[in-house]
Amino acid sequence: MMFPSQNCAEGLRGALRSLVRPVAVVTAAHAGRNHAMAATAFCEVSMDPPSMLVCINRLNATHLAVSEGADVCLNLLAEDQREISRRCGGGVVPEERFEVGDWVLGPGGPPRLADACASILLRPGRIVDHATHAVVIGEVVDVALRDDRRPLGFHDGAYLFPLAGAALNLVAQSALLGEAGSMTDGFLMLDVMRAFYWFDEGLQSALRARGWEAVSRSQSMAFANIALGVRRPIDLARNLGITRQGVSKMLQEMVDREWIVIEPDPTDGRASVVAFSDKSQQLRADALEILSRIDQELGERLGRKTVDALRATLGRDWGPPPEISALPSAQ
């Protein structure tokens, strides 16, 4: 369904959040210091000569290095490198960004991540300043490629986790083979994912029917985490699989809508905590009432005892996630 957007910036953010995008860390070395920033705004420009572009915020220290002639390295992250993205997206101070990951550091070039999906060395040829960012167009002068790594994906403000990615691939492959119906057998994770989406779609649909502005799935999960007592932005970022920069943007949108407030952390003067605003009381009351009615409807459809047993099972302590060993090598 198409609908007009009254705010182009908000509409663009929503459109881009719907895309699944790869994640990279852009690095540069200048004046004896190494710089790193997480990025999703990059793409190829030409194959003759090979060239790419990357967009860099002009307030970022990496921009200063590039503007003064430094080469840059575009490190395409693998699915198990979310922590590197979080650190380089603002999760830690710049001096600590290279403490995680197999970084190749040395004179004569920008830092390179040895176990990335690929590391692409760019020699900037043109820099175009536009509003808050600079578009850096560079010639590709070297590529280090790993064919045994799967890329890290980003969608709707969150990372695509490896297990979720594997599940989605299973579903896609089964659909291709005409066996999608069989995916409900034997994969509890897919059943839980499907159930979550079912609940969330029902909640969002009912909220819209009552006149509330659209709530993204990430914001819905943020509400749930805050209700469970997770109040520090860095902890929200970790639970939602979002960079600190990404969660800051999402929380600011929620502040602008007067759903939450951000206050100083009473236990740590350097940190902040998130709390529900007074104006969010009606939204939360409506959400709780809707969820209660969804539970009631589900009980009528499946039987109250069945739903109660399901809740009891999901509420039990399952212990830590199992450590599944690699399959033995074929003899």
Results as ranks from 00 to 15, higher is better:
I226Q: 00
L122W: 05
L160D: 05
L74P: 10
R208S: 12
S174I: 08
Y197A: 15
A227P: 04
A195N: 10
C43E: 15
V66L: 05
R146Q: 04
F161S: 12
S277A: 14
D115Q: 06
I56W: 00
A275F: 10
P110R: 02
R33C: 05
E258W: 08
D308R: 08
L152S: 01
L12V: 09
D317K: 08
A209F: 05
A28C: 03
G269Q: 15
L168A: 14
D156N: 09
E96T: 01
I234R: 13
L64R: 13
G14L: 01
R58E: 06
S5A: 11
L113T: 01
N75A: 06
R311I: 02
V66I: 08
Q6H: 11
S292L: 11
D278R: 14
D286S: 11
L121M: 13
G202V: 00
G299K: 01
H155T: 06
G211T: 09
M52L: 12
D286G: 07
S272C: 11
L163G: 14
L207I: 02
A164M: 11
V141T: 15
I56P: 00
V136L: 01
L19F: 13
A158K: 06
D286R: 04
L207V: 02
E83M: 06
E297I: 09
I294G: 00
I234K: 11
V128A: 07
H130G: 13
I120R: 05
E10A: 12
G125P: 06
